[in-house]
């Protein structure tokens, strides 16, 4: 399925959840990334059981960077 991650189109396996997406995208220090799913901040404790759907838009955002 196709997702839009940080503005770029990404192909991933069907039915993966947010935790799996962070792994697939090889996000370093995933503990330091917050996730917006279709414009809404996603609670961290929902990463495991939030299954993604084709066409979802995600923003993976570092909250500890110099751009805070």
């Amino acid at each position: 399925m196709k997702l839009t991650v940080n503005g770029e189109s990404v192909d991933v396996g069907d039915g993966i959840n947010v935790t799996e997406l962070l792994k697939v995208q090889e996000v370093k220090m995933p503990d330091m990334v917050s996730v917006e799913l279709n414009g809404e901040i996603l609670d961290r404790d929902k990463f495991d059981n939030t299954t993604l759907n084709d066409g979802d838009t995600l923003e993976l955002l570092y909250f500890m960077g110099g751009g805070a």
């Binding site: 940080n6 955002l61 960077g65 110099g66 751009g67 805070a68």
Partner: peptide
């Protein structure tokens, strides 16, 4: 991108 948090960077 840095201000948005998509990338690390010093500002």
């Amino acid at each position: 991108n840095v201000f948005a948090g998509r990338e690390f960077g010093y500002v």
